[in-house]
Design a protein around this nucleic acid. Structure first.
Length: 425
RNA sequence: GUGGGUGUAGCUCAGCCGGUAGAGCGCUGCGUUGUGGUCGCAGAUGUCGCGGGUUCAAGUCCCGUCACUCACCCCA
């Protein structure tokens, strides 16, 4: 409170015990990809500004007003990545990753940055788990990607979320529809900012939350009603495959993603109970993106899942994640002599997979036990001159109060009994 | 960028119509000599966000400012 420094505005920080939940959620969201043929890709957190301008689209809010952009010492314009897809595509093209079997399947996790006004669930530094499958237009791949996101959420025990799905059309049918919508929007009574958006990117007006706007849009033409034959068939196939995979979804013909590159399949996972920021993940197909970045004309599909928001969703549903305790045993030495022996035994235990710590600064056995208890240990291991003389250690079960002695040269035999396994909720 | 709410102990918060600051939890110690968690007793801790104004007197009223927060816009 009275320290000289504070964390930058809008940046969430996680520390024990909440940070364990953060790691658990992040890993759970990434797990489905890792067993489905996706390889890990580690990318720079900053890129040339132009990559995002061209990839994400200059008319998107993300690029036009939410990027952390600065000039580096070589006078280059650099931007902290606001999303993951553009960077993945750049890396695929740059390193020729698409010259192997297609589709190229990659997953990533890390921090992204958007210079927005922070609020609940909306941060300037956000954590995302994402994946991309590049080089195939197969609708079954769209379904796989969506199903993997769904599995991630479901594996956490989340229930009150919803998958919304639509198709935005392709390079053939979208431009025609776009003009149709633009013409329709000209007949509406809109404020200046919205009118401007209608001119630049009319699709974006469709999911405006304001009722005054939505009221005028009830008769607006919708993308799904103006798909070409190919897109219609593709979308129908995606839907039926999702049904086959038993993934529940609802059609939202007004769903529009915030990034300009999406074509055909677009989806979003929303959760009630996060406040105003309901999106916990989303993605879609981006068939023209790679070509627009100067690479081959390969299509792709992917998603980004918000780790911060998913953690909020888990909390909102009151889910107890099966998180293992941070330690099983705390060792207490009651004399200077026994201290060295204790350090060695603790090290052995750690190597055998027991989570073990030492009550370093406890001035008495009493204080040591108190420390062990407060650290959440299930057992205390006591080593004093008496035990040392007989080659023993005393193991006290802090829950029952029972105490037994073990020989300290048969550690392998009793170490397994000190592992407290996490229980699922 | 726009609007609302809130700033008091480490945390959650109380403090009425102004009278020089409190609770619970947590923390430290004691109650056993080598036995914690329960219980009992004792104790420590605050620029009452910051600056100004009104007043004999301001945590309390007024103005400004900063921070946090929720919401709009937008998004994960």
């Amino acid at each position: 409170m009275s320290s000289d420094f504070r964390a930058p505005k809008g940046v969430p920080e996680y520390f024990p015990p909440v940070s364990a939940g953060f790691l658990y959620v992040r890993d759970a969201l990434a797990a489905p990809a890792q067993r489905s043929g996706y390889g890990y890709i580690e990318l720079p957190v900053f890129e040339e500004t132009a990559l995002f301008e061209r990839g994400v689209g200059e008319s998107s809010d993300v690029v036009s007003k939410e990027m952390y952009t600065f000039t580096d010492r070589g006078d280059r314009s650099i931007t902290l990545r606001p999303e993951g897809t553009a960077g993945v595509m750049r890396a695929v093209v740059e390193h020729g990753l698409h010259r192997g079997p297609l589709p190229v399947k990659l997953w990533y996790a890390g921090a992204f940055f958007r210079a927005e006004r922070p609020q609940r669930g909306r941060y300037r530094q956000l954590q995302q788990v994402g994946l991309e499958a590049i080089g195939s237009t197969a609708p079954a791949l769209d379904a796989e990607v969506i199903a993997l996101a769904n599995e991630g959420f479901a594996s956490l025990g989340l229930r009150s979320y919803e998958l919304q799905l639509t198709s935005l059309g392709c390079a053939q049918c979208r431009p025609i529809y776009r003009e149709l919508l633009r013409a329709f929007l000209l007949t509406c009574d809109l404020d200046e900012a919205t009118r401007l958006r209608a001119g630049l990117n009319p699709l974006r007006v469709l999911d405006d939350k304001r009722e005054a706007v939505q009221r005028q849009l009830v008769t607006a033409p919708l993308p799904v009603d103006h798909l070409c034959a190919d897109c219609t068939e593709h979308f129908a196939s995606v839907c039926s495959t999702l049904d086959l995979l038993n993934v529940t979804w609802v059609a939202n013909p007004r769903l529009v993603r915030g990034l300009d590159y999406y074509t055909r399949t677009a989806f979003e996972f929303t959760h009630r109970g996060l406040g105003a920021q309901s999106g916990i993940g989303g993605g879609g197909r981006y068939d023209g993106l790679m070509a627009s970045l100067g690479g081959s004309d390969l299509s792709g599909i992917g998603f980004g899942l918000g780790v911060d928001r998913t953690l909020l969703a888990v909390e909102a549903e009151g889910i107890n994640l099966p998180i293992a305790p941070t330690i099983d045993v705390v060792g207490i030495a009651t004399s200077v002599l026994s201290q060295d022996a204790l350090i060695l035994i603790i090290q052995r235990l750690r190597h055998l997979g027991v989570r073990a710590d030492i009550a370093y600064d406890s001035r008495s056995l009493k204080a040591g036990l108190k420390t062990a208890n407060r650290l959440g240990a299930r057992w205390a291991m006591i080593l004093g001159d008496d035990e040392l003389a007989e080659g023993l250690v005393a193991i006290k079960d802090l829950r029952t109060g029972e105490q037994v002695h073990h020989s300290n040269d048969a550690i392998e035999r009793w170490a397994p009994s000190l592992q407290w396994r996490a229980q699922s909720s």
